[in-house]
Simulated scan of single mutants.
Amino acid sequence: MPKPLILVTNDDGITAPGLRALISYMKDLGDVFVVAPDSPQSGMGHAITLDSTLFSKRVQMTKELSNVQEYSCSGTPADCVKLALRELLDRRPDICVSGINHGSNSSINVIYSGTMSAAIEAGIEGVPAIGFSLCDYSWDANFSHAEDFVKKIVSEALSNGIPKDVVLNVNIPKLSKKEIKGIKICRQAKANWKEKFDKRTNPMGKDYYWLTGEFELLDKGEDTDEWALSNGYISVVPSQFDLTAHHAIQDINNWDLNEH
């Protein structure tokens, strides 16, 4: 049997330490093919490139991974997956893994996440997919404690499959390996950002703005990703890309929309 083909991508860029760590973990599980942005694309969500050209080139970031095919892409994380599946790969990947992101993508952050949007793009195409994030925003973050857990989750996904139209959102707390209590399957916590803009004026007299804000957790449940992370667990949230609010269909059917 051929080894599983693993597509690896991210949103922090081709040189990001989190991506380099994920590649090294995946090469023990299968044949690795990498397509990642040529520059950081954090917070891009599911943006795709429509009004400009896309460029991609073969790169070799480290000699130790000379057997891993790597490509940089000028586009977004979603672009990277589209390009990989439509142009660069000669066979369909068995799984797509995105990350490891520098920073949390739990709760409402999943909406803005380029890491998860890359995984979701693969899921839309019917490729099993997982997004991995470490709750440490530092570029020099230590990913070593995540290795065994990441390998275990991907191995189980390859063996058992991921439910149709579902993508896994995995967040890893900033703890040592011995401090991590285990893995929890969770729901996404209800939360939002209390945002404001820091308004400033440049030397030319033009106003500009920096987006700032505080994370506000609105959910006290003990079955959420935020609870798991706060209590020493890795959170795994099965996420879907069907955004239909099925529970609301009947209520809105009661509106007099067809009355003139």
Rank of each mutant, 00 (worst) to 15 (best):
G123L: 07
S138T: 04
A129P: 12
F149L: 00
G13T: 11
D94P: 05
T15Q: 06
D90L: 09
K27Y: 06
K27L: 02
S107H: 01
I183K: 00
E121K: 11
C80M: 13
D207C: 12
N67I: 14
T76G: 13
N105I: 11
R91F: 08
I124A: 03
V170N: 02
T244E: 07
L50Q: 03
W255I: 13
G45C: 01
L175T: 05
S155Y: 05
Y112A: 09
T49C: 05
N101T: 12
A21E: 07
C135M: 15
M204D: 06
D140Y: 08
L134E: 13
A21L: 06
V127T: 04
R20N: 14
G123M: 10
K57E: 09
L65W: 15
N101E: 11
V167L: 04
I130Q: 10
S42V: 12
S230V: 01
D148W: 00
K164N: 09
M204I: 05
E64F: 10
E156K: 00
Q188F: 03
N253S: 15
W139H: 11
I153G: 00
T224P: 11
L7N: 07
C135V: 07
V34R: 14
S72F: 01
A118S: 04
D242I: 04
K57C: 07
S176C: 06
S98I: 05
L89R: 04
K63S: 14
K194H: 13
D12Q: 11
A245H: 15
T53F: 05
M44N: 12
S113L: 07
Q188T: 08
D219C: 11
V34S: 13
R92Q: 12
D223C: 11
D207I: 05
N171S: 14
I234A: 00
D251E: 15
H46G: 12
A122C: 04
V236L: 02
N169D: 10
N169S: 06
S113W: 02
A146D: 00
R20L: 15
P173T: 13
Y233W: 06
Q41D: 07
A129C: 14
W255P: 07
L243C: 09
S24H: 13
P4V: 12
K57N: 10
S117G: 06
I252E: 03
F149H: 03
Y71S: 02
A36G: 02
F55M: 14
K206G: 08
D12A: 10
A21W: 13
G114P: 03
L158C: 13
Q188L: 05
Y209D: 01
L88Q: 08
T244F: 12
S98W: 01
A189M: 07
R86M: 04
G123E: 07
G213M: 06
K206V: 09
S230D: 14
V150H: 03
R86N: 08
